[in-house]
Amino acid sequence: KLETFPLDVLVNTAAEDLPRGVDPSRKENHLSDEDFKAVFGMTRSAFANLPLWKQQNLKKEKGLF
């Protein structure tokens, strides 16, 4: 399991300012399950079932792209 970080560490943070080991294209993977659901309004599995373009739009909207 990946290390999780608080939302404010990941949202609207440039790649070079992210904690070590965080993939800038997969910031959402480093949210706790609770934060993930609070941000996206759905579970990880529901998010994973969305088309890629919709996932990317949601990530942009939430500052996690």
Score class of each variant (00 low, 15 high):
5 F>S: 03
51 P>K: 03
19 P>D: 04
16 E>M: 07
50 L>E: 07
45 S>T: 14
35 D>T: 07
48 A>F: 12
40 F>Y: 01
51 P>A: 07
2 L>E: 08
6 P>D: 07
4 T>E: 07
26 R>P: 02
58 L>E: 02
29 N>G: 08
28 E>G: 01
45 S>Y: 14
57 N>T: 14
56 Q>Y: 11
59 K>V: 06
27 K>R: 15
39 V>K: 01
47 F>C: 00
54 K>D: 11
45 S>N: 13
40 F>R: 00
13 T>I: 11
34 E>A: 13
56 Q>C: 14
15 A>W: 12
49 N>P: 01
26 R>G: 07
56 Q>D: 13
61 E>D: 11
62 K>A: 14
29 N>H: 12
8 D>M: 11
56 Q>K: 11
65 F>C: 15
38 A>H: 11
65 F>E: 14
14 A>M: 08
20 R>P: 15
43 T>P: 09
13 T>Y: 07
13 T>N: 08
6 P>Q: 05
28 E>Q: 04
10 L>M: 04
43 T>K: 06
38 A>V: 11
21 G>D: 07
58 L>F: 06
5 F>Q: 04
16 E>T: 09
14 A>F: 08
34 E>N: 10
37 K>T: 13
8 D>P: 06
19 P>K: 02
25 S>T: 15
35 D>F: 01
55 Q>K: 07
6 P>E: 06
31 L>T: 01
65 F>G: 15
24 P>Y: 03
4 T>Y: 15
42 M>N: 00
27 K>Y: 04
12 N>Q: 08
53 W>D: 11
51 P>N: 04
17 D>H: 10
62 K>I: 08
46 A>D: 12
58 L>K: 05
9 V>R: 12
15 A>S: 12
39 V>L: 12
12 N>I: 06
57 N>G: 11
29 N>Y: 11
24 P>R: 06
7 L>P: 06
57 N>A: 14
14 A>V: 09
10 L>E: 03
19 P>I: 03
54 K>C: 14
47 F>M: 01
35 D>V: 08
50 L>T: 01
18 L>W: 05
63 G>R: 05
48 A>I: 09
51 P>S: 07
54 K>E: 13
60 K>I: 14
7 L>A: 06
10 L>I: 05
51 P>T: 05
12 N>R: 08
9 V>M: 14
53 W>R: 08
63 G>Q: 05
24 P>T: 06
49 N>D: 14
44 R>K: 12
51 P>F: 01
52 L>M: 12
